[in-house]
Structures are given as structure tokens and as C-alpha cells.
Simulated scan of single mutants.
Amino acid sequence: MAKRSVVLVCFERVQALDLVGPWEVFTEGGHDHYALRAATPGGGQFGSSSGLRLIADDLSRVRGPVDTLLVAGGLGVHAACADPAFLSPVRRLAATARRVGSICTGAFVLAAAGLLDGRRATTHWGWCEQLAREYPRVTVAPDPIFVKDGNVYTSAGVTAGMDLALALMEEDLGRQAAMRVARQLVLFVRRPGGQSQFSAALELQTADRQPLRDLQAWIVANPAADLSVEGLAARAHMSPRNFARAFTREVGTTPARYVERVRVEAARQRLEESDAGLELVAKQCGFGSGNSMRRSFLRVVKVPPADYRVRFRSTKP
């Protein structure tokens, strides 16, 4: 079987991991399956945003057939978007590629080239508002790890490009191959891309004081435990009133809201990865009942847990 040609498009001040991350995923997939090349305007040596020097082929000289065209992001993306000599070969290659995608702010390149018009797309959470503002014909989804719309794929920030590459590999070579690569690179296999690029542990701020930081980590690890204000206060060796005030001040939300977010996140993972019934998932994640979990899902995720499972269930091996 012929190798699949994968072209990763980059530019001066690219985010190095946007390029190297997917490259490593496809490389682990096997040299028998993928022929990789990086391409940049003019070719030769260029710099990443972190100062790492890279070498790539001349983008204008890349010819098809291209199976997969992926555009990286980085601090130089807006200068690249304003360069017709950069956008022209991107459009040319995209016109015949089997699938086209972007990593992080590479979505701006696809949008500038008109490849996202009328499509749903995502990018790094910090750039979603600007993408939507500058390209109103694009429906920007700020939450997912990656979005597939037809043969066009867009991923969230930086390391999400590796999630996207794993998903593309699964399409090509099957789940077992993707699982093997994920284990080798010590990655999670997250599919089908509906999972949030946010988490309670990342989106909410970490407490200033070590005891509360440790407690936050304990909550994430033990969603089914007694996470009442009284129970948490006892673990923190504080009075319930003083604990609630300190937690809210340092974390930016009440203990109850933080616990709800953690439990919903834990339930989402179980719904995506297991066959357990809703009542059992609710019990495992500390909800009093399936109805309680449903109310929390509607409040946090905006869909009931049963619908979430249908939409975002991982493919079985």
C-alpha cells in the first residue's frame, strides 16, 4: 500500500510543538504508512517562537498528491495570513488533499484562505473570540479538543494537535494502532473530539496556600468521597465558615461549584469510556442519584448525560 503523504505547513515564529507533536505521532505510526514533510515559505532554516531553529522544504514547490495537509499555529500566524504568497500554495494543496486540518492558531490560516467558510471550527481557547470576530462566516466552537467538519479538521491549542493526529491515525490504521502510539508517547487517546479543552483542574485557579492546593488535588482524585463543606473543612483543619470563605477567595468559586465541576468531569470520562449505566456512573462520581447527575450535566455541559454519551462515546476497539 502506498504511503500517505502528510504535509505540515509552518512559518517563521511557529509554535514548535504544533509542528513536532503531530510529526512524532505520525512517525510512531510507522514509516511504512506515512511520508512526512514540513514546508515553509522559501524553505530552509527558520525560527520557532521559542527560538528553536527548524528546517523545512519550500512550500511553493510542494506538489501533490497530498493525503493530509496540516497547518501549524504560533506567534507568526497573523503575518503568514497577510502574505498572499503563503496563502496561495495552501489553497492549491488543500484543493486536492483528501483532508485538511490545523493545529492551534493554524485555524486562522485556513480561515484566511477561505477554507473554513460555512464550517464549524475551533482553535486555542484564548484565540476563539478573535477568530469568530475576524471571520464571521466561521462557526467557532471554543470548547472541543478538535472539530471535524467534512474533510476539514481544526484542533484546540498546542498539544491538542497530538490528539488530532491520533484521531487521524485511528481513521487510517484503526484504534489498536492509535492505542499503541498513545502508549508509546504516554498520551491519552481522546476521541471523537468532543471532550472539552477545559477541565476543573485547569480552568479554575489554584489556591495560594498549600493545604488548599493539596485539597483541590484530593477532590479531583476522590469525586465519590464526602465532599460537603463540612467534610472538606475537616480535611483542611478549618471551620466550615472559614474554609468556605478561604476556598472561594483563593479558587474563584465556591466549594460546591468546584465539586460539581470535578464530578461532572469525572462522569464525562466514564460515559465516554465505559458501558456502565447512568445510575452506576452517578454513584461512582459522587452524585446522589442519576437525576442529580442529570441536573448537574444540564447546568455545566448543557446536555443530559445520556445525550452526552451518544454524542461523545469513544469508539470501541
Results as ranks from 00 to 15, higher is better:
residue 294 R to E: 13
residue 235 R to D: 07
residue 11 F to I: 06
residue 223 P to F: 10
residue 53 R to M: 11
residue 314 S to A: 15
residue 78 H to R: 14
residue 26 F to P: 03
residue 291 N to M: 12
residue 111 A to G: 12
residue 116 L to E: 07
residue 109 V to I: 12
residue 8 L to F: 04
residue 69 L to K: 07
residue 144 P to Y: 01
residue 30 G to E: 06
residue 49 S to C: 03
residue 59 L to F: 04
residue 52 L to H: 00
residue 68 T to F: 09
residue 173 L to Q: 14
residue 147 V to N: 00
residue 310 V to Q: 13
residue 30 G to R: 10
residue 172 D to A: 11
residue 103 I to G: 01
residue 254 T to F: 03
residue 80 A to C: 07
residue 15 Q to I: 00
residue 166 L to Y: 00
residue 132 A to S: 13
residue 28 E to R: 15
residue 221 A to D: 15
residue 66 V to K: 01
residue 301 V to Q: 11
residue 66 V to M: 02
residue 243 F to Y: 13
residue 14 V to T: 07
residue 128 C to D: 00
residue 206 T to F: 13
residue 222 N to D: 14
residue 192 P to R: 03
residue 191 R to N: 05
residue 150 G to E: 10
residue 15 Q to M: 12
residue 282 A to M: 08
residue 308 Y to I: 11
residue 38 A to E: 02
residue 241 R to A: 14
residue 242 N to T: 10
residue 170 E to G: 08
residue 23 W to H: 06
residue 195 Q to S: 14
residue 215 L to R: 08
residue 290 G to V: 06
residue 38 A to R: 02
residue 272 E to G: 02
residue 49 S to E: 15
residue 277 G to N: 12
residue 23 W to A: 12
residue 188 F to H: 12
residue 207 A to W: 06
residue 219 I to S: 03
residue 239 S to A: 12
residue 80 A to Q: 01
residue 11 F to P: 01
residue 220 V to R: 08
residue 82 A to H: 08
residue 91 R to M: 08
residue 1 M to Q: 12
residue 278 L to S: 04
residue 235 R to L: 14
residue 56 A to W: 05
residue 262 V to K: 05
residue 300 V to C: 10
residue 299 R to K: 15
residue 288 G to S: 14
residue 302 K to H: 15
residue 215 L to P: 02
residue 125 W to C: 05
residue 151 N to C: 08
residue 33 H to P: 05
residue 6 V to R: 03
residue 292 S to V: 14
residue 311 R to N: 10
residue 177 A to M: 01
residue 52 L to V: 13
residue 12 E to C: 01
residue 99 R to E: 08
residue 149 D to E: 01
residue 305 P to G: 05
residue 23 W to S: 06
residue 279 E to G: 02
residue 117 D to V: 08
residue 142 P to Y: 05
residue 69 L to P: 04
residue 140 V to K: 03
residue 195 Q to Y: 11
residue 126 G to F: 06
residue 179 M to K: 09
residue 220 V to G: 02
residue 92 R to P: 00
residue 269 Q to T: 15
residue 53 R to I: 08
residue 117 D to N: 14
residue 184 Q to I: 09
residue 264 V to P: 09
residue 232 L to G: 10
residue 251 V to I: 14
residue 148 K to F: 00
residue 133 R to A: 14
residue 75 L to H: 10
residue 152 V to Q: 06
residue 49 S to V: 06
residue 231 G to D: 10
residue 188 F to A: 13
residue 213 R to C: 05
residue 4 R to V: 00
residue 261 R to T: 09
residue 132 A to H: 07
